[in-house]
Design a protein around this nucleic acid. Sequence first.
DNA 1: CAGTAGTAGCGTTAAAACTACACATAAAGT
DNA 2: ACTTTATGTGTAGTTTTAACGCTACTACTG
Lengths: 237, 237
Amino acid sequence: MKKRMYDNIQRFPVALDGIIFGFDRQALNLLLIKRDFEPEKEKWSLMGGFLREAENLDDAASRIVTSLTGLKNVYMEQLYGFGRHDRDPVERTISIAYYALINIHDHDEDLVRRYSAQWFPIDELPELIFDHQEMVEAAKARLRYKAARQPVGFELLPGKFTLPELQQLYEAIYETELDKRNFRRRMLSMGVLVKTDEKQKGFSKRGAWYYTFDKEKYKKMSSPVNGSALAFMPARE
Amino acid sequence: MKKRMYDNIQRFPVALDGIIFGFDRQALNLLLIKRDFEPEKEKWSLMGGFLREAENLDDAASRIVTSLTGLKNVYMEQLYGFGRHDRDPVERTISIAYYALINIHDHDEDLVRRYSAQWFPIDELPELIFDHQEMVEAAKARLRYKAARQPVGFELLPGKFTLPELQQLYEAIYETELDKRNFRRRMLSMGVLVKTDEKQKGFSKRGAWYYTFDKEKYKKMSSPVNGSALAFMPARE
DNA sequence: CAGTAGTAGCGTTAAAACTACACATAAAGT
DNA sequence: ACTTTATGTGTAGTTTTAACGCTACTACTG
């Protein structure tokens, strides 16, 4: 029995590209790979790959990020579908971009080496191939959007972290400085931070308290842009 | 000279599906078509079509909406890429959903008849094929998000409209009632409405002033979700 | 061991935004 | 002229934001 198929239509390779964010307690970074194949060999690009038969988009995106970082169950969200007809000089493809948030210290360094990958601070990115620059811009905008309404630290920070560290992350995301007192109040008011009885040592004289996330509450708040969580007529900006 | 191509990868039909919103001065409506072909013949679905070679995604989405409505230069925004591997029983496809906002009275009625298309109030939708229900939900959420930070009337309303009409639209979008005075203040404060010296006649005794949009300012505010316009750490909801 | 330096952490206040709510006004129809 | 019906306006109380000055720890120094 022959499988049914659509007639008289084009078929295209469907790529998944991953914008992988990591935070090193200082700056927000992006994991890029140096292409060792044509076209655009030796130039930098996002990690990508092609969709396989019988594989969901989300699964494919996960597979691709895992193949570079070794990490599973990474937080990812679909960003946008990029499909300019001439975006890829080899063949007409469309690419669904996903962004991922990972703890920069968790990744598999061997894998990263094998792919000639490297972390770049987001304000010092090299030139990227194709439309990858555009993807990165979109991902930054989305991350900012997301961070504004829920603490994004859970994915980017280690299990325990201090408020100054969280603030550092936010300042990296927004590329600006924030008021310590207001930031603190705002984050705490979201009700997902749990203070531990442990203090950070060695960094500052006084030492800051470590916090963790209340995973339960955090998960409830975490919803993609299309999720239900958008408030009814929230304030204009 | 042979064209270069990628090796050993699958290729897929790429569909575009359009969530077409229209407003008839009463309710928010969706334009759906009755399928006259298998599978799922006689059931309702979104208007869709397949991507062609050398056609940008946005252009393809436009083409598809135009083919049903006769309207060109419709406001559209990419919504999300849907790609469950079993989403289409005929063949594995991926679909990029776009939503469109049109003035319901402008569409080409012949075309709509030819496709056996029909407008449905968004709170009385029939059962839809595949994952189209999910797409509609996502589109509603996105429209709500968008409407909260910029007046969305321009695309959905005729050139001139009254504030009560605009409010009617918002109430349809949010499926709730709004306070007249607060709504009015909020819309006017966005600074894109221009009062004309013309009054609506025949509908209410007193008659309401017609307004138009200041297209210049309006365009500046109109940016897709990924645009830059997201405020720096806007209020929590 | 006392003083200093450098962050961490707290509280207050003024401005802005939001919410809720009630009455006057224009014009059509009798 | 009076009634009817929807349009249009103002205000007060509350909540949220934004700006800002000061105290509290503790490691290091002499």
